[in-house]
Design a binder for these strands. Sequence first.
DNA 1: GAGAGTGTTGTAAC
DNA 2: GGTTACAACACTCT
Length: 294
Amino acid sequence: MPELPEVETVRRSLAPKILRHTIEVIDVRLPKIIRGGAEEFSSQLQGKTITELDRRGKLLTLWLDDRKDALLVHLKMTGQLIFRHTNNPNEQVVGGHPWPPFDGDLPNKYSHVIFGFDDGGRLYFNDLRQFGFLQIADANEVSRIHATYGLEPGRPEFTLPNFLQILEKKRGVLKAVLLDQRFISGLGNIYVDEACFWAGILPMRRVESLNETERTRLFDSIVNVIHTAIEQRGTTVHDYVDADGKRGNYSDFLMVYGRAGLLCLRCAEQGKESLVQKVKLSGRGTHFCEKCQF
DNA sequence: GAGAGTGTTGTAAC
DNA sequence: GGTTACAACACTCT
């Protein structure tokens, strides 16, 4: 599940490969993946150079040429952006470069959009569940979309005072609040559960019931979880890989997510015994330890 | 082999 | 405004 650390890892691994390179060929194999129509999409991208690679929350923004338009990419649940240099001599040559692309396992049946770059590089947008999308937007539209995203861990504005200030206005179940991208952007199911664990707070608590100490612990936990997860190049549960096709290592650091029925590691460390619980909250599988989260 | 579970986001309905 | 349900989808697990 690509959340902030995964999308950031894709951004970092992809940037050196495509920045200042020009898109020569676009192959849209599943038109419904393109928001706003596949025909215009291809004609608008043809011959454009990627000049900047931004991220807002879980949304990637690939700026084109003079920053007038951008290519937006959302990976949703199972999307991948994998880059390869072609090495198959039997490929047909189109526009001075081999086409169609083929490199070992790619493209596969989930490769819905393929970009061919001027240096022979290939960018594959794969998506098993087809929830992700690609979209061309002009600078105004990009600003409007970016503005819908809330305070973001890792950015300078993500300070304790700012966090406390916006939390003050929120009501409802903590899990739902933390998943709300308009409030805090970038957290998904995995990191919400992990942050709540580190903060020692139950995700089913209502935010209005949290005291200042708990709110501060929550802030610190979000910062630490996201920071460490980026350091570890994200979490791979099923499908997530970076632009090199590599898996993320934060899977080894998970304390509650995916550990239902297993011993709580923090309790075990303190000589206590408790099993990680799993319930459904806000429509999502929610993991916690009932002994060390309150 | 049927059915549930997996989770992001937008939308509808309460 | 919070909350729930559901839709998009395909694969894995029970």
